[in-house]
């Protein structure tokens, strides 16, 4: 009995953190979910109907998908070979990972400030390509600006994740394959890639949901009234400019739902390629 009490006393240590997450994270989510259905005012689906009929609302889903999906696919395809090339632990690897963590840490707002100057009409990038005889391709205040910003913050993120999965693979496996005459490509194709598939799927999902909820760069580097009016802009405007909290909750729920669908599809696709433990050795 005494032991049982001591055991439960230790369990109390878990209470504050759990309570916090329930009160500040779970409760608002449920609250917002229920709030998005207008139970008190007749038609409970009114907000959702309104979202899918308003010209300033439903197109944001497609606009955001068009920005975030191709960028994330591009980032993953770029990150895999580079992470693979840097898989050996070396000073070079350490240097590259340290440099790449800088844009992630600085964040979208600071990058936007730099990009406005760098890609601006008098910026160094535009000056440099002018020497090559290329006219200003207008890289900011449109979708291109947002895409560049999503590459700068998304690529290092995926790279670091994929690199951590690659370095977690037992180096004995590829070495054994090499002994049997496998070229680096064959090692990649038949050893690394199958083992990495769950990790890549995970990295894709994490990077995609971040890109899908892009906000500061869509406002600062894009044209938030039109081509880069992403779904977070619609949600923010509804909540804090029109103070329609119920509708804003509906937009946030739709935002989360679209993310969930894409994540589900990716995990389903992963199942087609890979049958084995759901997670890698670590993750």
């Amino acid at each position: 009995m005494k032991h049982f009490l001591a055991y439960n006393k230790a369990m109390l240590l878990l209470v504050p953190a759990t309570a916090f997450i329930f009160i500040v994270f779970v409760y608002p989510f449920i609250y917002g979910f229920l709030w998005s259905f207008n139970f008190l005012e007749g038609d409970w689906l009114a907000n959702y109907k309104s979202f899918f009929s308003r010209g300033d609302m439903y197109p944001t889903i497609l606009v955001t998908l068009k920005l975030s999906l191709p960028v994330t696919i591009f980032n993953v395809l770029l990150a895999i070979p580079i992470a693979f090339a840097l898989r050996q632990k070396s000073r070079y690897q350490k240097m590259v990972t340290t440099i790449l963590v800088v844009p992630i840490t600085l964040g979208a707002v600071l990058l936007a400030e730099g990009m406005l100057t760098y890609f601006g009409p008098k910026g160094w990038f535009i000056q440099a390509i002018a020497i090559l005889g290329i006219d200003d391709p207008k890289l900011i205040h449109n979708a291109t600006g947002v895409i560049i910003s999503l590459v700068i913050s998304g690529f290092p993120f995926i790279f670091l994740l994929v690199l951590s999965y690659i370095t977690g693979i037992d180096p004995g496996l590829p070495r054994a394959a090499a002994t049997l005459g496998a070229s680096p490509w064959e090692q990649f194709r038949y050893i690394y890639l199958p083992l990495l598939t769950p990790g890549i799927a995970m990295a894709f999902c994490l990077a995609f949901v971040q890109a899908f909820s892009v906000y500061p760069s869509a406002v600062l580097l894009g044209s938030p009234a039109g081509p880069t009016r992403v779904i977070s802009i619609a949600a923010y405007e509804t909540a804090f400019e029109r103070y329609d909290y119920s509708m804003a909750s509906a937009v946030a729920m739709i935002m989360g739902f679209v993310q969930l669908i894409v994540v589900a599809i990716v995990l389903k696709l992963r199942g087609l390629f890979y049958r084995g433990p759901v997670t890698g050795g670590k993750g």
Binding site: V24, F25, Y27, P28, F29, Y31, G32, F33, W35, V209, Q210, F212, S213, Y215, S232, A235, Y236, A239, F240, Y245, A248, S249, V251, A252, M255, G256, Q259
Partner: peptide
């Protein structure tokens, strides 16, 4: 992502 849960959290 923070923006997804941030909107309901902030409104609450």
């Amino acid at each position: 992502p923070p923006f997804t849960y941030g909107i309901p959290m902030a409104t609450v």
